[in-house]
Nucleic acid binder design. Structure first.
Length: 425
RNA sequence: GGAGAGGUGACCGAGUGGUCGAAGGUGCUCGCUUGGAAAGCGAGUGUACCCCACAAGGGUACCGGGGGUUCGAAUCCCUUCCUCUCCGCCA
């Protein structure tokens, strides 16, 4: 949720920022919010003074009763009662305005950082880095959804039997590869100073609201019936919510957490012919890095997190490209996002394996995650997160890029984790 | 799942309708004291919003969450969540 103070104090910047997202009437939307805010404050002011008067009279009643002046007290009671009735109406008005303002703010996306490029389509994302050479494959090279059958390491039919589409069963070396990748990612993050967290993978409604999955994106999460619990779509939700309603000290910063969790996504409506095999799943494994940082250092942290992701991909020998997402492609809550895509040679496609974002105060405003400054004043912190990494697509690229005639070579860095260097029949 | 107890500020812990944003203690900050430290003494020490210059100052709300009774509630009533103890069940 945007801070009302930002809209109030930097109106023009907010308008031009939102314009990058192709929101045409941004100026109109924002002035509406400011109008509501103005009314809200005016109502608050008169409500408060009414209540102040009623409180003063109430106290007086206490004194009058003790002094035995019953008649006077009786009259004050009546007066106070009237005041309270007026206050009640104002209170209702005030609550209505608060809700309206909040709703309006919920519907406004984050303001893109000024380095976010203009653009509407994914094709307009800015290529900022490219690494690695494309593998040269045999002409009989296969996409991973064929390879996994050949070597019997991942079984979609079985998953279908147990659950449904998008819930694969990993077997033998397939299962081992997943475990190896998770452990590799966790170890790398730990070495980079991240504290490992193993959170619940089921969260309540409050948590979903705080990180913004609710109320607008219910379609993304699986809800558990007969409770207000949800399966998490990413470890970001439980890990970030650890810090909901907290005030950190400057010395606590930066907070760096990493967590491995399965992630569950309904992906309602996004199932298509181009989404095969491991490219898009309803359940998948992901290692997520999260940082909470001082506003002055958050963009440095964003850079640091990108370098971390790049290092993982390089060690895994996967050719990748890094994209600075344009306004139109930017996630609702993000101020700036870099996507990492690896090249999967078997299907000749770039697969998004990591998305690293700075949310600035957009999340912390709802989370009420603040920091006590040296001047004793509280201010909102910045949150950042990124996948490091999304396992199935990494696995897909490894399988495809390292295939040879009778097997698949495992990247060297993974061998200590897998215990084998080749997948073969 | 059954029975009972309880949720108060950073922490411990008073408070059963009026002057309680909340006694007392601990912790923390600043000052005095000291060669230095400890002890001691004094002052301060929550969050959000509103007025105002985001100053000083003032106001409102908040004693797990929500609702109610009352002129007035941390205190009474309803509801919900959570914690603890005992019993049962169980990886």
């Amino acid at each position: 949720m945007l801070e009302i103070a930002i809209i109030r104090d930097h109106f023009d910047q907010a308008v031009s920022g939102l314009a990058k997202r192709n929101i045409k009437d941004a100026g109109h939307l924002l002035s509406e919010v400011l109008d509501l805010d103005k009314k809200r404050r005016e109502t608050k002011t008169s409500l408060d003074s009414l209540l102040a008067e009623a409180n003063a009279k109430s106290k007086e009643i206490g004194r009058l009763i003790q002094a035995g002046e019953k008649e006077q007290a009786k009259q004050f009671k009546q007066e106070t009662s009237d005041l309270k009735n007026q206050a009640k109406d104002l209170q209702d008005q005030f609550n209505l305005l608060v809700n309206k303002q909040q709703e309006a703010l919920y519907n406004l996306p984050n303001i893109p950082n000024r380095k976010v490029p203009m653009g509407n389509l994914a094709s307009e994302n800015e290529l900022v880095e490219e690494w690695g050479d494309f593998p040269t494959l045999d002409e009989n090279a296969l996409p991973h959804w064929n390879l996994i059958n050949t070597y019997d390491i991942i079984d979609f039919d079985l998953g279908n039997k147990l659950t449904g589409a998008g819930f694969p069963v990993y077997k033998g070396k397939g299962a081992k590869l997943v475990r190896a990748l998770v452990n590799f990612c966790l170890d790398q993050a730990e070495a980079a100073g991240y504290l490992e967290i193993q959170p619940p993978i089921v969260v309540n409604e409050t948590s979903g609201l705080a990180t913004g999955q609710l109320p607008d994106k219910e379609g993304q999460m699986y809800a558990i019936s007969d409770s207000n619990y949800y399966l998490i779509p990413t470890a970001e939700v439980p890990i970030t919510n650890i810090y909901r309603d907290t005030i950190l000290d400057v010395e606590d910063l930066p907070v760096k957490n990493v967590g491995y969790t399965p992630c569950f996504r309904r992906e309602a409506g996004s199932w298509g012919a181009d989404v095969r095999g491991l490219n898009r799943l309803h359940q998948f494994d992901k290692v997520e890095i999260v940082q909470i940082n001082h506003p002055e250092h958050s963009y440095h942290a964003l850079d640091e997190m990108c370098k971390h992701v790049a290092s993982l991909l390089q060690q895994l020998e996967l050719p990748y490209r890094k994209l600075n997402l344009c306004g139109g492609d930017l996630g609702f809550t993000s101020a700036q996002t870099f996507d990492f895509e690896v090249y999967a040679a078997g299907q000749d496609k770039w697969l998004e394996v990591s998305s690293v974002s700075n949310f600035e105060t957009y999340q912390t405003n709802r989370l009420k995650l603040r920091c006590k400054g040296l001047d004793k004043k509280n201010f909102l912190l910045h949150t950042l997160n990124g996948s490091a990494l999304a396992i199935p697509r990494i696995l897909a690229a490894i399988l495809e890029n390292n295939q040879f005639l009778h097997g698949i070579r495992i990247p060297e860095v993974l061998v200590p984790y897998t215990g084998f260097d080749t997948v073969s029949k």
